[in-house]
Structures are given as structure tokens and as C-alpha cells.
Write a protein that binds this DNA or RNA. Structure first.
Lengths: 113, 113
DNA sequence: TTGACGCATTCCGATATAGGCATATGATGG
DNA sequence: CCATCATATGCCTATATCGGAATGCGTCAA
């Protein structure tokens, strides 16, 4: 089996750097596809594809505006990711890590005696 | 080009659900590969491979303990993810979203007139 | 109606990945 | 040194991407 589909999975959707760039860009407000493509320096079909993935996982919404289609951020889907990583907050505490490294060294040393 | 390598990229590493499970499991303390495999209900080679990816992006460390190899969490790499998503915190505020949806509706309605 | 513009989609090729299975490697005990 | 347990790796297949180029489709203006 290959990797899980990006569709319907926010973790996969934001695994792609350019999609993260798009989300950051859209924080400044809604934009048409062409603008997104130009600001990221990528081809328009590519921007459309990324935006489609983001739309399918619910991270952006789109709205027709004449000839254009404006995309805007809907960051609610990022909340679960934030909370999931937040569950590890106490583990990346610097002091904790230093202590942990110390314990590691102790164990390693004891075992190498 | 295919998708970016999972290696050396935390966002990609945690895009895989089972790897996230492993990280959660390791919060309870270090474990040998076999335990990880058993607790996730997967084959041992699979667990080893996932652990390897996690090790290569720095999310776990390993330590030899006799015949076993104990893996332990090193969650520091999750901090950037937490902070990145945190940059969208104000956008998933419920009230904000409600207002936004309202504005959306207004625009949509105006355009459909 | 015809162009022109903005965007989505499709077809294609290259590649990375996940998983399974078999097997190699490593360490331990006898 | 050998048998055994614990892990890591290599090989293989199926599949899901990403990216590019061409093209389809809808909308607006003249």
C-alpha cells in the first residue's frame, strides 16, 4: 500500500511545504488562484491543485467572484494538529531534556562498564 | 517529481497515523521495538521502519539495552509544528469564524442578485 | 457571438512510500 | 561455537503523489 491519501487528512495536507506557504499567504486575506501562484512563484495549475487539496480537507474555502475564484483561509482544521502537538509540550521542555539526556548518559555509562 | 522525502522533515514524519501512535505510546516511557509492534498490532519490521523514520527526523532516540533496543521520545522536533499551527490560532476562533461566515454569506448573496 | 481571461482538470512520467516476506545482523546464554 | 531471541534490512509490488503541458470550461467584455 502506498501512503495514505492527502485528502481528508489535515496532517498530510500540511506535510507539503508549498501548501503550508499557501496557508500562511492566505492569512493576509483571500486571493485568487493567479495571485497565489505568482506570490509562490509556481505555475497556476500547481497552485490550483494544492488549493484543491486544501479545500478538500477543509483548510480553505472558495468563493466565486466574477471571473475569479477567491480562496480564503479556514484554519479550524489546524486546531487538532496544534492540540496534538501540544500534548507533547512538557516533553520538549529544555530542562526536562537536559535531565533526560543526563539519565541517558548514566544508563549508557552503566551499561558500558 | 514525487512527494518530498519523509526523512529530515517532521511534518511528513507525523503525517503517517501509525507514527503518531508510536509517538503517543512513547510518552509513557521508552520501549523495545517488539512492544511497540505488539501494542500497535503491527508486524515488527513495520514498527522498525516507522521507528527508523522517526529517529531520522529526530523525534525518537534509541539506546541499546542488551538484546533489546529501547526507543524513547524526543519531542523537541514537534515544537516547530506546534508553533507553526499556533500562528493560526486567532483564525480558528469561533466568533471570528462566525463573523467570517456571515461576511461570506453577505458577499455570496450580493453576487447572486 | 467571439475573444480573452481565470481557473480546473486530465494525461503523463518519475519517484517515494507503505507493507509484506524473507533474511541478515547483533547480542546473549549455554 | 551454536542456538535463540530482538531488530534491522533488502527486495518486491501496488499505489499515491508531485510536477509539467495541454486542454476544457465558465465568465465577462466588446
Amino acid at each position: 500500500m502506498a501512503r495514505a491519501a492527502t485528502t481528508s487528512d489535515v496532517f498530510n495536507a500540511i506535510a507539503e511545504p508549498q501548501r503550508r506557504e499557501i496557508l500562511v499567504l492566505l492569512r493576509a486575506g483571500e486571493r485568487p488562484v493567479t495571485d497565489v501562484a505568482r506570490e509562490l512563484g509556481i505555475a497556476q495549475p500547481r497552485a490550483s491543485k494544492h488549493l484543491r487539496v486544501l479545500r478538500e480537507v477543509g483548510l480553505v474555502r472558495d468563493r466565486k467572484a466574477g471571473k475569479q475564484r477567491l480562496y480564503c483561509l479556514d484554519a479550524r482544521g489546524l486546531r487538532p494538529v496544534h492540540e496534538w502537538t501540544g500534548g507533547f509540550e512538557r516533553f520538549w521542555n529544555e530542562a526536562f531534556d537536559r535531565l533526560d539526556a543526563y539519565v541517558q548518559d548514566l544508563k549508557q555509562a552503566r551499561q558500558e562498564e
